[in-house]
Deep mutational scan, measured.
Amino acid sequence: EPREEEAEKYIKRANGDYDKAQELAKKDGNEEIAEAIKEYKKR
């Protein structure tokens, strides 16, 4: 799923820090991806 791939990219950029990844996504205006990262975190 493209959303998950995007989320993974942010998580990698944030060195595995989900909260930081979420912030990066929000900064880029990717609210949807920020949500996907939140879902990811719950797994």
Rank of each mutant, 00 (worst) to 15 (best):
K20V: 13
K26E: 10
A7T: 07
E1Q: 12
K38H: 07
Y40A: 06
D28F: 04
K38C: 05
N30P: 00
A21W: 00
E8Y: 14
G16Q: 04
A34C: 04
G16T: 02
K27Y: 10
A25C: 04
E23N: 05
K42T: 09
K42I: 11
G29W: 02
I37T: 01
P2C: 15
G29Y: 03
D17Q: 03
D17K: 02
N30F: 14
R43P: 04
Y10I: 02
E6D: 09
R43L: 11
L24F: 07
D19W: 06
E23Q: 10
Y10W: 04
E31S: 09
A21R: 01
A25E: 00
G29R: 04
D17T: 01
E23W: 12
D28K: 02
G29P: 00
A21C: 00
E32P: 06
E1D: 15
R13V: 06
Q22P: 00
L24E: 07
K12M: 11
D28E: 12
A34R: 04
R13C: 14
K12A: 12
K27C: 07
E32L: 12
K42E: 11
D19N: 08
E1L: 13
E5S: 13
K38E: 12
E5T: 13
D28A: 05
E4R: 11
K38N: 07
E35W: 08
N30A: 09
A21Q: 00
G16R: 03
I11P: 01
E8F: 14
E1A: 13
A36L: 15
E1V: 13
A36W: 15
R13F: 09
I37Q: 01
E8M: 15
G16I: 01
R43I: 09
E32S: 11
E23H: 06
N15D: 08
I11E: 01
Y10R: 00
A25G: 01
D17G: 01
A34D: 02
Q22V: 15
D19P: 02
Q22I: 15
G16V: 01
A34M: 09
K27G: 08
R13S: 06
K38V: 09
K27E: 12
I33Q: 03
P2Q: 14
G16W: 12
E39P: 00
E35L: 11
N30S: 06
E5R: 13
E31W: 15
I11Q: 01
L24D: 05
E8D: 06
E31K: 08
N15I: 03
P2W: 15
A36K: 12
N30W: 07
E5F: 12
A34G: 05
R43V: 08
E31L: 14
P2K: 14
I37E: 01
K9N: 10
R13M: 14
N30V: 05
Y40Q: 05
P2T: 15
K9P: 03
I33C: 04
E4D: 14
A7K: 03
Y40E: 04
I37A: 00
K12V: 08
I37S: 01
K41F: 08
Q22W: 15
D17H: 04
E1T: 14
E35D: 10
E23V: 07
I37C: 00
K42D: 08
D17W: 03
Y10E: 00
D28Q: 03
I37G: 00
A14G: 03
A14P: 00
R13W: 13
D28L: 03
K41P: 02
A25T: 01
L24I: 05
K20R: 11
E32V: 09
A36V: 13
A25M: 00
K38R: 13
K27Q: 14
E8K: 14
K12C: 09
K38F: 09
R13A: 12
A25H: 01
Y18G: 01
K26P: 01
E35R: 11
E32W: 12
E6C: 08
E6H: 06
Q22F: 15
K26T: 10
K12I: 09
E31V: 12
E6I: 10
E4G: 08
A21G: 02
K12T: 08
K27P: 01
A36H: 07
A21P: 01
K26Y: 12
R13E: 10
E31F: 15
K9D: 10
D17A: 03
K42G: 07
D19K: 06
E4P: 06
I11D: 00
P2F: 14
Y18H: 04
A21L: 00
Y18M: 07
I33D: 02
I33R: 02
A14Y: 02
K41C: 06
G16N: 05
P2H: 14
Q22L: 15
Y18L: 10
R43E: 06
K38G: 08
K38T: 06
L24C: 03
G29A: 04
A21S: 01
A7P: 04
R43D: 05
E39I: 08
Y18K: 03
A14M: 03
E1F: 15
R13Y: 08
L24K: 03
K12R: 12
K26N: 07
E31C: 12
K41W: 09
L24H: 04
E23S: 07
A25R: 00
E39V: 07
E31R: 07
E31P: 14
K41L: 07
E35H: 08
A21K: 00
K42N: 12
K12Q: 11
E1K: 13
E1H: 14
E23I: 08
K41N: 04
E6Q: 12
E31Q: 09
Y40V: 07
E23P: 01
A34S: 06
N30K: 15
A36R: 10
Q22Y: 15
D17N: 08
I11A: 01
K42Q: 12
K26W: 11
E35I: 09
D28P: 00
E6L: 14
E32D: 13
E8H: 08
R3K: 12
R3Q: 11
E39G: 06
Q22C: 12
E39K: 09
N30I: 04
N15R: 08
D28V: 03
L24P: 00
K12L: 10
G16F: 10
L24W: 08
K9I: 12
A34F: 05
E6K: 06
E1C: 14
N15H: 11
A34K: 03
N30G: 03
A25D: 00
E1R: 14
K41T: 05
E1S: 14
Y18W: 07
E4W: 15
L24G: 02
D17E: 03
K38D: 06
G29F: 05
A21H: 00
P2S: 15
L24V: 03
E4K: 10
K20C: 06
A21Y: 00
K9M: 12
Y40L: 15
G29V: 02
E39S: 07
Y18F: 12
D17S: 05
I33W: 03
A25V: 02
K41Y: 07
E1G: 14
E4I: 13
R3A: 12
R3T: 13
E39N: 08
E5W: 14
E6R: 06
E35M: 11
Y40K: 05
D19I: 07
Y18Q: 03
A25P: 01
E6A: 11
Q22G: 06
Y18T: 04
K38Q: 10
A36G: 04
R43F: 09
A25Y: 01
I37K: 00
E35F: 08
D28C: 04
D19Q: 07
E31H: 14
A14T: 05
L24T: 04
E4N: 15
D17R: 03
Y40D: 02
K41Q: 14
A36E: 07
D28R: 02
E8R: 14
G16H: 05
A14R: 00
N30Q: 12
K20W: 10
E8I: 15
E23L: 10
E32G: 09
A25S: 02
E35C: 06
A36S: 07
K9T: 08
D28G: 03
E35V: 07
K9H: 10
E5N: 13
N30Y: 13
D17L: 03
A7V: 15
P2Y: 14
Y40S: 04
Y10S: 00
I11M: 06
K20N: 05
N30C: 05
K27M: 13
E6G: 07
I33M: 06
E1N: 15
Q22R: 08
G29E: 04
K38W: 10
E32K: 11
A34N: 04
E23M: 11
K27L: 14
A14H: 01
K27H: 09
N15S: 06
E1M: 13
R43H: 08
G16S: 03
A14N: 02
N30E: 08
E4H: 13
K38P: 02
D19L: 07
E5C: 15
Y18P: 03
D19C: 11
E35P: 02
R3E: 10
E32M: 10
R43Q: 09
E4S: 13
G29Q: 05
A25N: 01
I11K: 02
A21I: 01
I33S: 03
A14I: 00
E23T: 07
E23D: 08
Y10V: 01
I33A: 13
G16M: 05
P2D: 14
Y18S: 03
I11Y: 03
K27A: 15
K12S: 09
A7W: 12
E8T: 08
R13K: 09
E39A: 11
Y10Q: 00
E23A: 10
A36C: 10
K38Y: 09
R3V: 13
D19A: 07
